[in-house]
Design a protein around this nucleic acid. Structure first.
Lengths: 166, 166
DNA sequence: TATTGTTATACTCTATAACTATA
DNA sequence: TATAGTTATAGAGTATAACAATA
């Protein structure tokens, strides 16, 4: 199952009726979105049960692990999350004791965020498991496929962003 | 931007500290989920404003367009949607006049669903635009990438489904 | 006036379970 | 007892705008 080609054959112009047909399970956007739902669900097992956090919180932890001090605005830029989503994720993480905040003396509107020592421990626990998860997905691909994947994602992302309806 | 490799280089074991680092914007699950969010948002422009429906409703229309008579259960199987989600999508579509239902005389628990003539008109309007959208994404890829995509999705989907945390 | 970040509001979506009716 | 489908409930997530503080 499921190893069918995407849209080159996703439609078949019937020679009998002119009714256009779209085969949903070979249709690129459907397959992509459905795949992402499946990955999101299985990946969240890594952090959801154990730490009681969701995707936005995981992204904040991952971003602060990579760039140890950032403002909420920086995190929004880095993760494409809206400032309200970042604000709530940070509030959740602070209430769990994983993130600390400190006003920037040079601009009191801003606060510098960083992982607490507990947050660093969570990061240290999560990263190897996250990488192992990702590796399991990649290992399902051929070497050729694996090498192309980053470029494919980049091109699809740019194309989706560029799309404007007729 | 954004044409970076995925996880082969998504982590770098620092030689200075042993702190593992995960680069979020090169991390496969993040890139996949983020891409799908972008595609989902741009693709939904095709049907959301004009017909006031969401993804579940679009999937029901696409499924009934492909297989003209199905039960709600069949649609759930075909689209991996829970029966409550199918039930509500069908109710929405019926209230809009796009779907008709009829009890199956051989098993009165079931109802046979089909697109109304108005629903068929919506389908006929949406399918070419959906295919054009998909083509725009594919055209951003090289021929080699485009040919591999279906197999890649299938392999990733199977791997994500098979994943069990340690 | 513009920006950082929070809060309020209303809305959508989702998951679960409980339910009806049929088998 | 099991299945098709609906409804209830509560919780999670989302978008928008309004807001306070600061620049």
């Amino acid at each position: 199952m499921s190893h069918e080609p995407v849209s080159p054959t996703a439609h078949t112009a019937s020679s009998v009726s002119d009714r256009p047909v779209l085969k949903l399970n070979q249709f690129l956007p459907y397959r992509l979105i459905h795949l992402a739902e499946t990955v999101s669900r299985s990946f969240s097992q890594i952090y959801a049960d154990q730490y009681g956090i969701g995707i936005p919180e995981w992204r904040v932890i991952a971003t602060l692990g990579e760039h140890p001090t950032m403002t909420a605005r920086d995190i929004g830029t880095a993760t494409s999350m809206h400032k309200t989503k970042v604000s709530r994720a940070v509030a959740t993480l602070e209430s769990r004791g994983y993130v600390e905040r400190e006003k920037n003396p040079d601009d009191l509107r801003e606060q510098v965020l960083k992982l607490s020592s507990q947050g660093n421990a969570v990061y240290a626990d999560l990263v190897p498991r996250a990488l192992a998860y990702s590796k399991e997905l990649e290992d399902a691909l051929t070497e050729e496929q694996s090498e192309l994947l980053g470029d494919i994602f980049g091109r699809l992302h740019d194309a989706a962003n560029a799309y404007r309806p007729d």
